[in-house]
Amino acid sequence: MSLSTPLWVALAVAALGVLGTLAASIVTQVLTRRRDDRRWSLEREERARQWQREDAARWLADRRAAYTELLVVLHEQDRVLEAVRRRQAQALTLDGPVSARLAALSDPIDRAWHAVELLAPGEVTRIAGELTRELRDQGDQVLGRVTGPPGGPAPGDRQERFAALGAAMRKDLGVQIREPDPLR
């Protein structure tokens, strides 16, 4: 009697070994691919979140710069108009440097206004637009570009509107609105 194993059993065991090794290789590749896909997906999501944060920071910086530029030119226009009002109250004529400065502010005001109009939300745009138009109209009247009686609110009312504009801008930028100091 021979204790030999039939040939078909040896072939079946060999085939199962080859199939098992092949199946293990395929399963490993599938699992590795899934893990890599998940990792890449998470990396893409993190990159997208990072780009969104960077975009939000850029928009915030752009709005901050536009707001600053507009406030600077509007305050300068207001200072020049105040100088004109003082000269008119003293029955003095408008001198060349004051009228030249007033004329020179027209283009910077336009550029600053258009940047704010493009970037700002509705409340800021509305208040800034009203104040910008008011100061430009008064400047145009002083320069003789527009005829008619000088109009617009009193300087004190304008300061309230500057304060309202500043508050709306700070709110949009996420800056805590300062409460007035009662000791001042």
Rank of each mutant, 00 (worst) to 15 (best):
R136C: 04
E160V: 10
T32S: 09
V142M: 02
V73E: 00
R49K: 10
D110L: 12
L105Y: 01
V80M: 07
R58D: 11
H114T: 15
P150A: 15
R47F: 07
V98E: 04
G151W: 05
L94G: 05
L42S: 09
D157N: 09
Q50F: 09
G129W: 00
G148E: 04
W113M: 06
G96A: 10
L143P: 00
R79P: 02
T147L: 11
D137A: 07
A56C: 07
R87T: 01
R38A: 14
R133C: 09
V30P: 02
T68G: 14
A115I: 03
E130A: 15
Q141V: 06
R35A: 14
R101V: 08
S99H: 06
T93Q: 11
A128I: 01
A91F: 08
E123T: 14
P97T: 14
L94S: 08
R58M: 09
T28R: 14
D157G: 13
P150C: 11
L81H: 00
Q77L: 14
G152C: 07
D157M: 13
L119T: 02
R35H: 08
D107Y: 09
L94K: 06
L135I: 02
A24K: 06
G148T: 03
L42T: 08
D55C: 08
V84D: 00
L94R: 07
L31D: 07
A115K: 09
Q77I: 03
P121I: 06
E117C: 04
L81I: 03
V27N: 06
P121M: 12
A164V: 04
R53Q: 14
A56P: 01
D107T: 11
P97R: 14
G122Y: 10
I109V: 12
D107V: 10
A61N: 08
R86H: 12
P121Y: 11
E46F: 04
T93E: 13
A164R: 01
W40C: 09
T93H: 08
G129I: 02
R63Q: 05
L70T: 01
A66Y: 02
P153K: 05
L105C: 05
G144D: 04
E82N: 15
E46D: 08
Q138E: 14
R85Y: 04
D62T: 05
R87E: 04
Q29F: 11
I109F: 05
T132E: 00
R47G: 05
P149S: 12
R39H: 14
A91K: 12
L119R: 03
D157T: 15
R58C: 06
P153M: 03
D95A: 15
L131E: 01
A164W: 03
V30Y: 10
D110Q: 09
Q52T: 07
L102G: 02
R145D: 04
R126P: 00
E43D: 11
A57C: 07
Y67M: 00
R161Y: 05
V116E: 01
A89N: 13
G139T: 00
G139A: 04
R44M: 08
D62V: 03
D140Q: 07
S99A: 10
A89C: 10
L71R: 03
A24D: 10
G156S: 13
L70E: 01
E117K: 07
P149A: 14
L74W: 00
D36I: 13
A100T: 12
E46S: 09
L131I: 11
E43S: 13
A48F: 06
L31V: 07
R161M: 13
L94Q: 10
V84N: 01
D110R: 12
P153Q: 08
R64M: 06
E76Q: 12
R158C: 02
L42C: 05
A83R: 15
Q77H: 02
